[in-house]
Design a binder for these strands. Structure first.
Lengths: 333, 333
DNA sequence: CTGAAAGCGCTTACAG
DNA sequence: CTGAAAGCGCTTACAG
């Protein structure tokens, strides 16, 4: 570690000791008065507060953190924040956490399992109070006592997680395609190494196809953000006669729209598309995607609540489900 | 502050004192050996390292932070991370910072000047080592010694910032519209309260219109993310005969496309559109926008470098310009 | 309700 | 090159 300029540490050099002296009390009393923990006579508190104000006292959070063994920081590990779904998650988690006095540290794992492990370690050394961990991989070597929670994809050792009603919502989506008269329905859904709620999306599709005696045209590619177009091109190479498509994410759906155009297919006339997530609408993209919209604000609220339970050692449900709903856009009839 | 479970603090209860004892040296020596600062005999270092490994020693970062008066954390204040431009900035800043051993705390100000101030204070109390502050507002009460840097919009008191060549790039964009034969060229560009580089975007437009003796159809609305459609509807209410439009952001450009469709205009036949930022391409949106693409990875690199200069008290340029370039898409002829 | 004291786990002059 | 000691700024039992 190099020497660093202590620009704003310098200006805050008035300590609780100074406040105590100014107020004519002991540091312990000053501390109790300032933090509000422990009984203090109102008059004393008033004196201390006045002294603190007069001196412009700013408590040294670093000392507090050290003493209290807490940082009031939570980290979120995601593949990348430059993805609308994760950006939305991060946005709402940050809001929730801020209300509770916590800061959110964002870490992009770039969907790399090695980096995830490395980051998990770095973050633990930094002693954040909790972690929201969103991964596509298996991590069964993580201490199950750690205050970790997840969204959608549940990490190995059974950490609590928040998810949407993937199966039911996906079923509704695919059913709507059937009802619209679509004959050749396909599905593209990212594969995940972990047992993830997202698998229920294609399972709903598969079940429904079987129930209706339709062929199952399912592609479950392992891909990273940015490769959606290639994935969809591959799908259409396999099943060019598809007339309706259900995808595991809006990004895939959007790519499907583009590939359809490349192939001269009209949407929704020749090809209907339904995505999942419901995060592109805020970006004024075209066409308005028909999609299964997850309630990200509620999910963020729930995941933060779950994390707080773990941090404070309270009982927490292993799983919270937030309903998602099909939203009609311009890519279906 | 409530009691918190100390789940992973507990497991890391082996301190440097234990390591020193195990290695048969003083704590000071152990510290020097472990951190690599200060001379230590190779043999001693080996002993200490072995002891640390044997005991599974994990240095307590909180104690270090406290002692060193540094957190190895940088905060970024942005209107919202749920916006492609800011998300991209955050993504690349985080990557750069991570390489340097820093973590990035993300704070959404929601474009609220009051919240920005509040957050600035909270963040300072948390004693982050530096701040990347992106705002639309004036904050002239900030201590100029603080390690703050900015992107595009330079905050009040003359903090260093990174920007693109707004004027030249915008000029090129508008010029290309003129050259394409467009007759009625308009411009919509978000207003900002601060002296911001973004103003050069519409200034380039205005200058060019004047040079060519064209009318200036400029709208500079004050709006927040999510209101782009209303903004564009208002513009077209004022200038329905527009046949080419330059906007200050991709989000506005995208909204322009939608409003054009509402009005039955074909793009690019009836209306050409050029945006700014170049961040939507990664999202597979349609149509591929013609836009002035900023080099966000380079900008992030530069802004982090600028910040490190400030943190380490080194000389830093007041301003770094990263070239942006017009990228042809499907919304121009 | 209050003060004096101990201690959190490190790093860093300071002598040797 | 090394050890003993001081100290970073708080909080929290512990006696009063």
């Amino acid at each position: 570690m190099e020497t660093i300029s202590k620009s704003w540490q310098v200006m805050a050099m008035v300590t609780i000791k100074d406040v105590a002296k100014e107020a004519g009390v002991g540091v312990g009393t000053a501390s109790r008065a300032l933090t509000g923990r422990g009984a203090v006579h109102p008059d004393t508190k008033a004196k201390v507060d006045a002294a603190a104000k007069k001196l412009g006292f700013v408590p040294n959070q670093l000392a507090r953190n050290f003493k209290m063994r807490a940082t009031m920081c939570v980290a979120i590990i995601i593949p990348t924040v430059f993805h609308p779904f994760f950006a939305k998650i991060v946005h709402y988690c940050e809001l929730e956490l801020f209300k509770l006095g916590y800061r959110l540290i964002v870490v992009n794992s770039q969907d790399d399992v090695g980096k995830e492990t490395q980051m998990l370690n770095m973050i633990r050394q930094q002693r954040v109070d909790g972690i929201i961990f969103i991964t596509h991989y298996e991590h069964d070597d993580i201490d199950p006592n750690l205050p970790i929670v997840s969204i959608d994809r549940h990490v190995g050792s059974g950490f609590p997680y928040v998810t949407s009603n993937n199966y039911a919502a996906s079923r509704e989506a695919v059913k709507s395609l059937i009802d619209s008269g679509a004959k050749k329905i396909g599905c593209v859904c990212g594969a995940t190494a972990v047992i993830s709620g997202t698998r229920h999306r294609y399972e709903a599709y598969t079940d429904l196809m079987n129930e209706y005696g339709r062929p199952v045209w399912l592609l479950k590619p392992l891909f990273k953000h940015g490769q959606e177009m290639e994935v969809m091109r591959e799908y259409f190479r396999q099943h060019p006669e598809t007339d309706a498509l259900f995808t595991g994410s809006d990004m895939l759906a959007s790519a499907a729209y583009h590939v359809a155009r490349e192939r001269g297919m009209r949407v929704p006339e020749d090809l209907q598309i339904i995505g999942y997530d419901g995060v592109l609408d805020a970006w004024e993209t075209h066409p308005k995607l028909t999609t299964v919209r997850q309630d990200v604000p509620k999910m963020a609220h729930a995941v933060v609540e779950l994390l707080m339970n773990r941090i404070h050692g309270e009982e927490a449900p292993p799983r919270v489900e937030i309903p998602a709903a099909l939203v009609k856009g311009e890519t279906t009839r």
